[in-house]
Design a protein around this nucleic acid. Structure first.
Lengths: 198, 198
DNA sequence: TGACAATGTTACTGACCGGTACGTATACAC
DNA sequence: GTGTATACGTACCGGTCAGTAACATTGTCA
């Protein structure tokens, strides 16, 4: 036997990676301030010094969480439900459909980036800075898609969609069966009213 | 001389009231978890035992903050800009106008109730419970106003307005000059598209 | 004057927080 | 083997957190 049949590609998983995964889950579910570094390392099955070898501080770990979240977001946004879309209208509607389905379910926690902005009002916080940069790009992307839909005022439709989506993030964690139920209908209304007919 | 010219109506201000005021300001501006009880009492100019004579715990103080915020909110919502409105459409638009003006300014911190929901995901948290109850009522009130506008589907228009407003709260604290700029335009679009013409 | 209520003063607790000094195990190089 | 680098753990630090015990002080009303 060469290498045994077990462990085909499962490397030991670096401590830093385990910590990132653990932090992402805990920070998202419970909030960043609510989770101590001890809890993060315990869940990761490592020890505290391992955390501080890879991350300068808890704030920097939070920033890493933001970057991971950002990456994950764009994957979900650009391929909602695992599919890719060429039509801008269908693209956005698909994202909102998937999102609002999640958002009316129990335990939904909204957008990790928006939540971090609530937890850290100070502009110089590393996590917040990642979140702010993300939101700026997201706004630009939505304007782009609004343009692709043929909106009379792409900036306005882009903003409208952004406000709607952030509204879903927010209300989704305030109650189950919240207004996110109506999100797809509202989005259609918004788009149709913004796109020149004929 | 009777009572001297000074102090016309400024009673000493009960410790509990000073604490409520101090907590409201600090909790709103910096977040509840970010502010310690020591900071609250110091700003109030009182001492810690005074806090715990009037409030059972920090969580209960936070709940009191939520109730104060709730009261303040309804005053602002029902009389936007200090005026009262009989027309539902004008009423909602006036609120959104005032809100979005605040929301594009530096240092805006969104809705204290929504923020508390982000900080405390656990359903049994006292502050969160007040916030959840508030949001339920707010949704109902918006549906009522949508009905007053003559919407074809008041539930949908109510939800649309709620999603929009929560979107303003959220994006307003993510950046200055955010999408809240477009909020009034979007609200008009939404209302006009939802109300039967003719 | 005396009694009561509200508040301040001081000092403390135990738990938890973020962060670190320092020792240890493994693996590969020579 | 011995050196060396990497990756990790044990044990601890000082500070801050929410919350409390015991007592002193004040103002008010009778």
């Amino acid at each position: 036997m060469k290498k045994a049949v077990e462990a085909p590609a499962e490397r030991p998983a670096r401590a830093a990676d385990r910590i990132r995964a653990s932090a992402s889950e805990l920070f998202y579910r419970e909030g960043i301030r609510a989770v101590g570094v001890d809890e993060v390392v315990e869940r990761a099955g490592v020890t505290k010094p391992s955390l501080y070898r890879s991350f300068a501080s808890k704030d920097e770990l939070a920033a890493a969480y933001m970057r991971d979240y950002d990456l994950d977001f764009w994957e979900k946004f650009e391929n909602p439900g695992g599919k890719s879309y060429s039509d801008a209208r269908e693209h956005v509607l698909a994202y909102i459909r998937v999102l609002s389905t999640r958002a009316v379910r129990k335990g939904y926690r909204g957008c990790g980036l928006s939540n971090a902005t609530v937890e850290y009002p100070a502009r110089d916080n590393p996590a917040r800075q990642v979140a702010e940069a993300h939101k700026k790009l997201f706004r630009k992307r939505l304007r782009e898609l609004a343009s692709g839909m043929g909106a009379r005022h792409p900036a306005v439709l882009g903003d409208a969609l952004l406000l709607l989506i952030e509204g879903i993030y927010s209300t989704g964690q305030q109650s189950e069966d919240g207004p996110a139920q109506s999100a797809v209908t509202v989005a259609k209304l918004l788009i149709d009213a913004s796109v020149a007919k004929g």
